[in-house]
Design a protein around this nucleic acid. Structure first.
Lengths: 241, 241
DNA sequence: ACCTGAACACCGTTCAAGT
DNA sequence: ACCTGAACACCGTTCAAGT
């Protein structure tokens, strides 16, 4: 998960005697800090990504990071943008706009899901990094090219982004419960719903199976939301025209 | 914002000489702890709700709380359930199910919005308290009575709940930015989008006004999502039948 | 300009000891 | 059974001092 281009290299042997740049080697950089934060995120999860842990992994103290990032919030914004860099946006095709929107949303969800509970950090942030705006531009391009009015497209982009992040976050929570409380977590939840008094909770008690679903129905739940949202945007666009 | 019924009362004068219950007065209780946590939440926000602050406000140390709540997560779950207690669920009316769902979602959003950034805590939790299951039962009752199939109703309840919490949380973030960076935050964001190079970001740069909206268009954004989601559930239900 | 050690003001949780 | 003081192992951030 390391990004070799970001690692500081040892001095190149052929440049040994040559004139050095005026200031000594910069052992830290934004890139190196974000790369190290990503490694910790992937290995141990978001809670392990502290200024102290990142600094420690870089062989320095937490105060040193503040020469390169304003604070932890900025570090997390940079980390999110790094994670989002893998999402590619397609050239808009008005004939297939609904499928293009869905695929972009799946890709965004996958990018977040590939890095533990990074989605939790994304919840608390107005994403404004280079990749965030690149993806937002791509989503707006698909909607506008398909004839969705400006205001509807803007509202839709907002709602769709919210759904991606919220669903990715919900998925990590589910995983956390499963690993934390053993594989019987879903089973215990199912039993709890089933055991509710049917006179007061007729629906909850009889719908335990549907509410819990399989252990691995996150994909179906995500697609259900995708269908609903994209169909809703289509309807809103037609209404607005 | 205090709930007098939860405050420990001084000994009643008429009961002065009577036989006391076997153990000394219990100065702490779940109810008192949650009430104090709610007061701190309302006064200073979620970040101020720490075990130490709550204990301090109750005149004791943090360790004392652990006799009544398992950990901070449980305290936050109890707090969320307290906040949700104001939401009332209507008797299902199949003729008006879409409006009933929307109103229930507005009420849930309002309950969260009335207590600072409590929505952030709600993001990280599978709500299972008495009020959470009461509201879930009410939502499922509306959907099922209107003829929505079980599986669709279960998926819809999940997606709708996610939207309520995610939108409430997004709203608190916006407020935090506005108060933290002054009223010019929206203006600066608008200028940033406008200033993006139009050749690379034609849509973002030309849609700044639509994307930022008025300072107070949270209500419109929420209603937009409500329309889309409820219409989408209706379509999915019809497809499934 | 960049980096550092040390400190400040906090966290959640545990545990032995008290009543 | 309930409560407590003290400690453990952490946090993010600041600041004077170094180079």
């Amino acid at each position: 998960m390391s990004s070799p281009a970001d690692d500081p290299l040892p001095p190149h042997p052929l440049s040994a005697g040559r004139s050095r740049p005026p200031r000594a080697r910069r052992s830290l950089s934004r890139e190196a800090i974000v790369t190290q934060a990503l490694a910790i995120l992937d290995a141990e999860g978001l809670d392990a990504v502290s200024m102290r842990r990142v600094a420690d992994a870089l062989g320095t103290g937490p105060a040193s990071l503040y020469a390169h990032v304003a604070n932890k919030e900025e570090l997390l914004e940079l980390l999110i943008d790094r994670v989002m860099s893998v999402v590619v946006v397609p050239p808009p095709d008005p004939e297939r706009w609904q499928e293009q929107i869905k695929q972009l949303m799946r890709d965004g969800r996958d990018a977040l899901a590939a890095h533990r509970d990074i989605a939790r950090a994304n919840m608390g942030v107005v994403p404004i990094g280079p990749n965030a705006i690149r993806i937002a531009e791509g989503m707006l391009a698909i909607l506008r090219t398909a004839g969705v009015p400006k205001r509807v497209a803007a509202l839709a982009a907002d709602t769709l982004s919210l759904y991606i992040v919220a669903h990715a976050y919900e998925g990590t929570l589910w995983e956390k419960r499963l690993e934390g409380e053993g594989a019987h977590y879903a089973e215990r939840l199912h039993d709890y719903f089933s055991s509710l008094p049917p006179d007061r909770f007729p629906h909850l008690s009889s719908m335990a199976a549907e509410l819990i679903g399989d252990t691995d129905d996150g994909e179906e739940r995500f697609e259900f939301g995708l269908d609903i949202l994209v169909a809703g945007v289509d309807a809103a666009a037609k209404r607005a025209r």
